[in-house]
Design a protein around this nucleic acid. Structure first.
Lengths: 224, 224
DNA sequence: GCATGTGAATAGATTCACAGCG
DNA sequence: CGCTGTGAATCTATTCACATGC
């Protein structure tokens, strides 16, 4: 019963939040136990993958029966730190930043909006989702008041690296970058990025190529 | 070798848009040629990976010299269909949908906002980014008028599957889903998803388990 | 000489298939 | 029995290392 002492593969980590959501849905429907097969179906993955993923957290299933939903929620949630308090800071409150600030369902996952920062004088002072936007220069003050868990960058691309540097200097060690630019951060900082244009271009690549394949032969292709 | 003969690995496809952006930046700085090493540095990946990725498109480099920037832009862009016209439809114009509708830089990548759809009477008729929001029921009419390339779902989770079904029925074969729910689509439809809460939870997982050496799950990490 | 292009080696993720246990 | 848990097999991606050719 040493919860997840073996290193959990990256691919598995990226699926845990998905499993957690599906499990919470099941719990909401009063479902008590679930098989890897059913869980896989709901999560859109393969059943063996579910079992292997969950086995990295420990052996929490019952052979011949399945997994106890509440028990799994507890363990997956613990692994993801859902019970902790994760203060977020959003930098850049254009359309995207606003959308993120208004994103529901974060508090139920342990997140809390700690501050909204921008440099535009016409935005600073504005109230968004019950929080007043403060000037980016107040970042250090905010960081001193509480340990910021994640910095979200939703600025124009030209400002993103500078903002990242300031977040890192302020002690932030996890950054989610929405600006379409490659950021450099020190090794101890975890960085992920979300890029709308990239996602769209990946989609159109496949459109383009499926069209090509169809023109050559009527061969069907699989999509994930 | 003729481009696009062999199947291009998925991982490579997902990096091509990134390379393209870096190349466009270089072209903007009047850089004529670039080595795999430099390109890798700017894209935040390994040089051998860049060479292997590009080799799937054909052999467009010059040994001892590097890659011609404009020539590469042309070929990578062609592969991604940047020169084509890709009509997009956004369904759901809450905060996120609005942010997406106002997202700049899409037209330069071959995208065009074809329609904005919602079911909320207080939103229908509103003008966003120079386009009037129409009712979702007009989807079929829009699809009949022009071949929609990508459907973007930015609705509440409960509505997402229904919207996906309607998009598919209307002939859309590529969907980008921002709703935090697993969608089912037929095999011939390409589906990608972007989920803010999942991204944040992946980040906090690594925060929680910070005894690891570096943990970067997307791409684009580099030491400063 | 020098950077590409690519087989070979390695690492990582997925899937299979079945032993093991409730 | 049924379903988990997991070694082994497979598939995919990354990285190495060097022959190749400008």
């Amino acid at each position: 019963m040493s919860p997840g002492r073996a290193r959990i593969p990256e691919a598995t980590v990226s699926r845990l939040p998905l499993y957690l959501r599906v499990l919470l849905d099941l719990a909401g429907e009063q479902v008590r136990t679930v098989s890897s097969e059913r869980l896989a179906e709901l999560a859109g993955v393969n059943a063996a993958k579910v079992r292997k993923d969950l086995s990295y957290l420990g052996s929490y299933g019952t052979r011949g029966v399945g997994y106890d939903v509440d028990f799994l929620i507890d363990h997956v949630g613990r692994e993801l730190g859902v019970t902790s308090d994760w203060p977020l800071v959003i930098v850049g409150l254009g359309n995207l930043g606003r959308a993120l600030a208004n994103y529901g369902g974060l508090s139920s996952r342990g997140f809390r909006m700690a501050a909204l920062l921008d440099v535009d004088p016409s935005v600073v002072g504005e109230k968004i989702a019950d929080l007043a936007v403060r000037h980016l220069d107040e970042l250090e003050r905010v960081a001193a008041a509480e340990r910021l868990a994640v910095g979200i960058i939703a600025t124009p691309p030209a400002a993103a690296q500078d903002v990242a540097d300031r977040l890192v200097a302020a002690g932030v060690t996890a950054i989610l970058n929405f600006a379409p630019v490659v950021l450099s951060v020190p090794d101890h900082v975890t960085l992920r990025k979300v890029d709308l244009a990239v996602e769209l271009q990946i989609l159109t690549f496949y459109q383009h190529h499926q069209a090509r394949l169809r023109a050559v032969a009527g061969d069907g292709e699989e999509s994930a």
